[in-house]
């Protein structure tokens, strides 16, 4: 006798909450038909805490601000340039703090630098950040240099190297903005791995929107033109990629995004992105207040997007359904095909 001959009703099938067991609570949604080990998760929930999505956000902010600063440098917009490099450095420093303190052994953070491993997005990211960071630092310090130090040898050297260093950083910035998507997707976490084709576009779009927004908030409207364009195009890209992401997901895995805290965070993010986009396009050119308001809305939206995607991933590990149902379906399809 094989298990397939057994009356399926006699096998214990249950959702995470033991719906099949009845009595405890009545569910409106019928329990998904899958089996598990007492409803226990199949894979480990990530050990990462809030600092990781915070890093995903600040990393994107640093990247976008650097690109805008470099462009401002080349196109002669000193206020945007200054805000860009300073914003980028601040976000970068925050990123590093988040990354290092999330380690189980922070004092060993430099062990990341002992190898370069193309199969590990965290290793790739470490090296991208290593290439990106120093130039941003140099460019930002040059912005901060007090007037009386500028004529000194060191001051002149700094100011002269700031531009090439900053431009070189800007070359790596797009990588900083998009690699974080691979960082999440290169895992067994169903909601992250399942979104692997769209997540880079969501994150890059969100990075552009948030950094454009930050520069809109920090720069006078006359100089913030590129920031508005960047923010608007990023917001449009993010909104579109976000929709496609949900549509393409396996219907069960999609629920990780469309229910619970992940859903609430991402809906708030979407609302703020739409509002920020509208403000950017309609009024930010004329009014500093509108510019600051819509810029900050986009910044907050960017943070909520990362936390939302992060939460969706966590939720998809805590319930064995997200792991078992799609995998079981694959097996069934393969045995039929």
């Amino acid at each position: 006798m094989s298990t397939s001959d057994v009356d399926p009703a006699r096998l214990v099938r249950h959702g995470r909450d033991g719906r099949r067991a009845g009595a405890v609570q009545r569910e409106v949604v019928p329990a998904a038909d899958f089996r598990s080990y007492y409803g226990r998760p199949v894979i480990k929930a990530p050990v990462w805490e809030w600092k990781v999505p915070a890093y995903l956000f600040t990393g994107g902010l640093a990247a976008g601000s650097a690109v805008l600063a470099a462009g401002a440098d080349l196109s002669g917009r000193p206020a945007l340039r200054r805000a860009g490099w300073l914003g980028s450095l601040a976000a970068l420093l925050a990123s590093v703090v988040f990354l290092v303190t999330d380690l189980g052994r922070p004092e060993r953070f430099h062990h990341m630098l002992r190898v370069a491993k193309p199969t590990s997005p965290m290793s790739v990211g470490t090296w991208i950040l290593t290439a990106f960071g120093p130039g941003v630092g140099l460019a930002a310090i040059a912005e901060l240099l007090p007037r009386r130090l500028r004529p000194t040898v060191l001051g002149r050297l700094l100011r002269r190297s700031a531009r090439p260093a900053g431009l070189a950083s800007a070359v790596f910035a797009p990588g900083v903005a998009s690699y974080t998507a691979v960082l999440l997707s290169h895992t067994a976490v169903p909601a992250w791995h399942g979104a692997r084709e769209q997540l880079p576009f969501v994150f890059s779009g969100s990075a552009a929107a948030a950094s454009g927004g930050l520069m809109m908030a920090l720069t006078p409207v006359e100089e913030a033109g590129p920031a508005r364009w960047f923010a608007a195009s990023g917001a449009v890209g993010e909104l579109a990629a976000s929709k496609v992401l949900e549509e393409r997901l396996h219907p069960v895995v999609r629920e990780a995004y469309t229910t619970g805290r992940a859903h609430r965070l991402r809906r708030c993010s979407e609302g703020l992105t739409v509002a920020g986009l509208a403000g950017t396009v309609l009024g930010a050119r004329r009014s500093r207040a509108v510019s600051v308001g819509s810029g900050l809305a986009l910044v907050v939206a960017g943070a909520l997007q990362r936390f939302g995607v992060f939460e969706a991933g966590i939720a998809s590990t805590k319930d064995p359904r997200y792991v078992v149902v799609p995998q079981r379906e694959r097996l069934v399809q393969r045995s039929h095909g």
Binding site: A63, G64, V67, L68, G71, L74, S75, A173, P174, G175, A177, S178, Y179, A181, V182, S185, H186, R196, E197, Q198, L199, P200, F201, F203, S204, A207, A208, G212, G225, P226, A227, R228, W229, F230, S233, G234, G237
Partner: peptide
């Protein structure tokens, strides 16, 4: 995944250049 990230990075850079 890296291909997708590369395309997204290129789009990001294009958007930046276009903005200026």
């Amino acid at each position: 995944m890296w291909r997708a990230a590369g395309i997204a990075a290129a789009a990001f850079l294009t958007a930046a250049v276009g903005s200026f």
